[in-house]
Simulated scan of single mutants.
Amino acid sequence: MWTLKKLNLDWSGASSQRLNEMNELDELRLKAYESSVLYKEKMKKYRDQNIEKREFAPSDLVLLFNSRLRLFPGKLKSKWTEPFKVTQVFPHGVVELENKEGTKFNVNNQRIKSYLGQAKSINEVIKE
C-alpha cells in the first residue's frame, strides 16, 4: 500500500489487474484438472481392455496355481497343476472345484485359469 502511494500508482488499476491474474490462474488449474481426469479415464479404459475376463461356468476345466508346493524347486517345473472340474461358481470370486477322486474344495478364482488342452470329453480328463 505504501509503495503505491509513494510511486503514485493507481490502486484500482493494480487491484483489477491482480484480480484478472488470479482468475486466469484459476482457469488454468481447472483446465489442468479436467485434462488429467480425461487422461486417467482413457488410460483406465486402455488397461481394462487388456484384462482377461475370469468368468467360469460349471463343468469347465481349469488349472490351479500351486504357490505352496515347494518340494522340488526348479525352473522347468510348472506351477499349474492338473485340470480340475468347476462344479459351482459363487459370488465374489469363489469357485468350487472337483479333482479326479471326486473331492470338492473352494478356491479364489484368481488362482485358476482355463484349461486349453485337447480333451475328448470332460469325464476322460477328470478320470485320468
Results as ranks from 00 to 15, higher is better:
residue 100 K to W: 03
residue 76 L to R: 12
residue 87 T to L: 08
residue 81 T to A: 03
residue 109 N to L: 13
residue 71 L to I: 02
residue 72 F to H: 12
residue 106 N to H: 07
residue 72 F to Q: 11
residue 123 N to G: 02
residue 108 N to K: 14
residue 76 L to V: 02
residue 94 V to A: 10
residue 104 K to V: 09
residue 71 L to T: 05
residue 39 Y to A: 15
residue 89 V to N: 09
residue 102 G to W: 04
residue 90 F to I: 03
residue 65 F to N: 10
residue 76 L to A: 05
residue 97 L to I: 03
residue 61 L to F: 03
residue 124 E to Q: 12
residue 125 V to Y: 06
residue 77 K to T: 04
residue 59 S to N: 15
residue 77 K to N: 03
residue 66 N to Y: 00
residue 103 T to G: 00
residue 120 K to G: 11
residue 104 K to T: 07
residue 113 K to D: 00
residue 121 S to M: 07
residue 57 A to K: 15
residue 78 S to F: 02
residue 45 K to N: 09
residue 98 E to T: 00
residue 93 G to P: 07
residue 59 S to I: 04
residue 61 L to R: 10
residue 107 V to Y: 09
residue 100 K to Q: 13
residue 62 V to D: 10
residue 57 A to F: 15
residue 87 T to G: 06
residue 79 K to Y: 04
residue 101 E to T: 05
residue 95 V to H: 07
residue 83 P to M: 07
residue 42 K to W: 08
residue 50 N to E: 09
residue 99 N to S: 11
residue 125 V to P: 02
residue 47 R to T: 06
residue 125 V to Q: 05
residue 95 V to E: 08
residue 74 G to V: 02
residue 65 F to I: 01
residue 69 L to Q: 13
residue 84 F to Q: 01
residue 44 K to F: 12
residue 81 T to L: 04
residue 99 N to F: 04
residue 67 S to K: 14
residue 107 V to S: 03
residue 113 K to W: 01
residue 62 V to H: 05
residue 109 N to P: 01
residue 75 K to R: 14
